[in-house]
Design a protein around this nucleic acid. Structure first.
Lengths: 352, 352
DNA sequence: TAGTTTTATGTAAGCGCTTACATTTGATGT
DNA sequence: ACATCAAATGTAAGCGCTTACATAAAACTA
């Protein structure tokens, strides 16, 4: 693993000559240090000198070599971002916000995917660390709390999205999932539903367990027993939602509403119902979770609870800007509240 | 723009000491060069010496400093990837493949978003270049062919996804969009439809124009006139598809099928029909383009033409591996053929 | 005007690697 | 035993920057 691939800088052959700081200093008639100073803008340089340097830079088409800057300053201006999936509807908006926030600050983002697998997640982290990232933003699922606590003691600052660990809570940007789970189910309950199925995500994930916990609390508040057989653990994907719904239907139990732990499974489950001639929401109401864009545009429009993942991405980026790059301007908040979006997949129960 | 933010390497303060190549060389009792040689595995080192070095590395927990390696070798082992959007269903799978292929080769990917805007795309390219990327993978839409031709003359190798430019075709990885457009419409025509509307993407994009061209060719082949008023230019988004469909419906013309230039617009358009009580596919058939995952799981399942964007991502990554990092193993192909996926949103016209 | 402080600039030592070239070592042939 | 040559290893000069420290220039002070 330490053995590296050979590298073939072919473009060295026919390369355009790249002006260096030295060339600029000669042309401007000043020292290297002065050129560096005007680049970094951190030490006073007289206006006259500064202008000479800027002119020389422009004349030479000078671009600072960021690699050399990194080596000399021990700061790579890069932030590693690890998510479980790059595809799917979920992480895109988060990546967009992170990329925007960091690029604005002239930092770049290096990506890695962890695929919700402990080994791959750890490899991803290792990989990003070995790349000399100044900080890491991790949306990481399969590794243990202890690993992350240990990690956050290391020399590279780390912030966690979508995960709450009490011992390092100041580094966590998270959604109040229990509350969201409660809200979703409470909405369904408030519509008079009593026979409620639940399609859950993978229960090894904390956020999934929290959503379910909220679901149960809502049921309890309405004095309705949680029926374990009507709770199916699935995989957060559309196809998983399809399967889960098929299983629910095959039970031949009365179900008037299905609460889903995310929108993707809800969409799959709804499709299955429609194919079976079950009307949504007339026969069965549905509510999802996450408020991803797509199900807002299909029929019926999916009721759901928002997961402001893009906001959380932005916050994580700001945390990095503040903690690592000393940006004083930004405001960081770590806990996000879900919000209920009532659309057309849920309606009051009809007593026919 | 040349003026950089100050950088605060706070972790320098309480940092764990990072062993350098020097420490390893001392511990192993060899020279720096020898350590470097065993890392890079490019010059013969005796087994005995190699073992001493590896032992020392392990003992010290040595990790090579990739920044220093990059500076010395003039090879950053990083590849810049620019896409128009990081969110949306489209680029995720592509990013996944690129990330996987490159990380396997121990290269890292730096991302940037261009937002389909000429200025932002150019800035993104500039940004990635300034980051010392060894190569660029660009899915770039708003800039001119000439700009890209010029770019590809530069010293940083560039490969283009989703764009065909004849002058630099060996650097293009693209889908045969005209053929795909033809296939989609031909499928609809083969079902007996004659009153066919078309919802297009933004016509400034070449791939959009190609799809439309294919559509027209299919019509011609079936001796059906292209009705300009039934062709709506939209924005590739769900909401755009909704709007376009509303406009089509308000025309009060006979329409038995709608060909959409992508799946997202098709989904929006279908939702609008369903809300108007128009049955799909009984009253109107639909076909999309791209074969993104989501509409495969809703009701009706969307017929479509595949756009193997993930394959194209993989190919672009391989191109980089081959051209830039001298990997001989990989096979690169540049042109991809669309494939028809017939599902339940399209059916033969009913003559009632 | 000489002495003192402040401000602007220069000098040079790294940062942690790679690699061309020089040197040493050891094997081989005679 | 010695010359010859290949293989293994070492030496040292960078790569393009940053920055502590030294110095020179400018601006005050009395």
């Amino acid at each position: 693993m330490l053995v590296l691939e050979p590298c073939a800088p072919r473009w060295l052959l026919n390369t355009h000559y790249m002006a260096t700081i030295y060339d600029v200093s000669v042309m401007a008639g000043v020292s290297l240090a002065t050129v560096s100073r005007v680049m970094n803008n951190n030490t006073k340089v007289s206006d006259k000198t500064k202008q000479k340097v800027l002119d020389a830079m422009k004349a030479l088409g000078y671009r600072p070599n960021t690699i050399a800057q990194s080596l000399a300053s021990n700061c790579s201006n890069s932030v590693g971002v690890l998510v479980s999936q790059l595809d799917g509807p979920f992480y895109g908006p988060m990546m967009t916000e992170i990329e925007t926030a960091l690029r604005t600050a002239n930092k770049h983002v290096i990506i890695a995917a962890g695929h919700s697998d402990e080994k791959q997640e750890k490899e991803g982290v290792e990989f990003l660390m070995s790349r000399g990232c100044d900080a890491l933003i991790l949306d990481i699922e399969a590794v243990s709390d202890d690993y992350l606590i240990e990690l956050s003691k290391g020399s590279t600052p780390v912030v966690f999205i979508n995960r709450y660990i009490d011992a390092i809570k100041e580094r966590c940007v998270y959604l109040e999932n229990e509350q969201g789970g409660f809200m979703a189910t409470e909405h369904i309950l408030s519509l008079g539903h009593k026979d409620i199925a639940y399609i859950s995500g993978p229960l090894f994930k904390l956020d999934v367990r929290d959503r379910l916990k909220g679901h149960k609390r809502a049921l309890q508040q309405y004095n309705i027993d949680f029926d374990d057989t009507l709770c199916i653990e699935s995989d957060f994907k559309e196809a998983g939602g399809c399967e889960a719904m098929e299983r629910l239907l095959s039970m031949n139990k009365t179900i008037t509403a299905v609460v889903c732990a995310n929108d993707q499974m809800a969409s799959g489950a709804i499709a299955v119902c429609l194919e079976h001639g079950i009307r949504v929401p007339d026969d069965i109401s549905f509510i999802g979770y996450d408020n991803i864009p797509f199900p807002q545009y299909i029929s019926p429009k999916l009721s759901t609870v928002s997961n402001p993942i893009h906001e959380m991405g932005k916050m994580a980026a700001r945390w990095v800007l503040q903690e690592v790059y000393n940006d004083k301007e930004v405001i960081v908040e770590s806990s996000f509240k879900p919000e209920l979006f009532i659309r057309s997949s849920s309606q009051a129960i009809s007593h026919d």
